[in-house]
Computed example of a mutant assay.
Amino acid sequence: IDMASESVGGKVLFATDDFFAPAENLIKSDGPSFREHEYTEFGKWMDGWETRRRRTAGHDWCVIRLGIQGVIRGFDVDISYFSGNHAPRMSIQAANLEEDKLPEIPQRGTRMGAAATPEEFEAVAQLKSDEWSYLVPMTELKPGNPASSHNYFLVNSPQRWTHVRLNIFPDGGIARLRVYGTGQKDWAAIDPKDPVDLVAIAFGGVCVGFSNAHFGHPNNMIGVGGPKSMADGWETARRLDRPPVLENDENGILQVQGCEWAVFRLAHPGVITQIEIDTKYFKGNSPDSCKIEGCILTTQEEEDMVKQKWTLPAHKWKPLLLVTKLSPNENHLFDSLTLELQDVITHARFTIIPDGGVSRLRLKGFPSSICLLRPRGESRMRFSVKTGFKANL
């Protein structure tokens, strides 16, 4: 997941200079583009962050607050279209900061043609970002294909991070910064009486397999906030094995053999009690119906399933939601069958019939401290209902 993207709430807090193009471009969710003949009053229009040619001591840098806070696995420093003006070298630092203890940094507003003010430098100095941990040391950036110049860096750090600082040496341009990783939540701090979305991408939920993602990735469904458009959801291609003439059964469910599916690893093992399926913006292309199942898998079992394209034996999956009719452009709320089964799960499979698009999937429930490393021979651990869990349970 791109933890810095504007689509998940990433934000540029500070940049030393934004003369040719503002640092906010770094975290745009779409890829960079190029307009050959377009100029601004400050110079060539560029889709990225580009500073002026530095004529003073020092180097340029910016600070980004991650929209999803968690474990960083790698970076993509993209210098596409910056031919002749890319930053020659860069480094990346990171910190884990408490939100309520952060200094107040002035709002950036419109930045083109501007450099940071003394007041902004004074405010950001309180972050002591020059002392943050280095995840990528100073490294030379290598241009490749002008339209696709990516520099990838793996990170081996189990720590939780909330902010990153991108340093460029000494100046220049970068099109995009992707901060790839997984969300991480402090589960000990949650209210045990209130259900929490156990599949949320911000907490560490992630799609680990899918049948088709022609128009949109399943990770979009577990994204931050509400859907922004039809592009902000999971949408498959139309199945080619649809019958020439469609028919319904007595319950109004389409009679088709094919389906599409996506498997998610929950952010934390737990019991799912409430299900939310939103088809907002999908007006002529929502699924006819859907179902949801869950199971328990160890890390090794998940790896095996990925290799086998999720051909999991049917007896391992347990129903959370039976085949249910869906309506276009509507938010659907359901009680999970685990209200009765009280089964802990680690993974959920969302199946849509026959195809189509869904904007959001929320699997709300209660985390459990189930041990996933126990020997196979031991008896199954059951979910224990906490005081105040739910009156009707």
Results as ranks from 00 to 15, higher is better:
29 S>G: 14
35 R>H: 13
5 S>R: 06
191 D>W: 02
250 E>Q: 11
51 T>N: 05
265 R>N: 07
393 L>A: 07
301 E>P: 01
170 P>S: 12
159 Q>C: 04
333 L>G: 01
52 R>P: 02
38 E>M: 12
58 G>S: 09
193 K>W: 00
222 I>W: 08
307 K>D: 11
372 L>S: 02
197 D>E: 09
74 G>A: 09
22 P>K: 08
345 I>C: 10
43 G>P: 13
337 L>Q: 13
361 L>V: 06
149 S>A: 04
37 H>E: 07
175 A>T: 03
129 S>K: 08
300 Q>S: 12
269 P>W: 00
87 A>Q: 00
371 C>M: 03
384 S>M: 07
386 K>H: 14
197 D>A: 08
23 A>F: 11
360 R>I: 13
73 R>S: 14
80 S>E: 04
183 G>D: 04
228 K>W: 00
46 M>V: 02
366 F>N: 01
8 V>Q: 10
359 S>R: 03
36 E>T: 11
250 E>R: 07
148 S>W: 08
79 I>P: 10
131 E>P: 00
29 S>K: 07
337 L>F: 08
34 F>R: 04
73 R>T: 07
359 S>Y: 04
164 V>W: 00
285 N>M: 06
133 S>V: 14
140 E>R: 15
324 T>N: 01
231 A>L: 08
366 F>G: 01
351 T>Q: 09
94 A>W: 06
245 V>W: 01
222 I>E: 10
226 G>K: 11
360 R>V: 12
105 I>A: 07
191 D>E: 03
133 S>A: 14
288 D>K: 02
239 R>W: 01
375 P>L: 01
210 F>M: 05
101 K>S: 15
263 V>I: 15
221 M>E: 04
158 P>K: 11
65 R>C: 06
24 E>W: 00
273 T>I: 11
204 G>W: 01
197 D>H: 03
325 K>R: 10
239 R>V: 05
106 P>M: 09
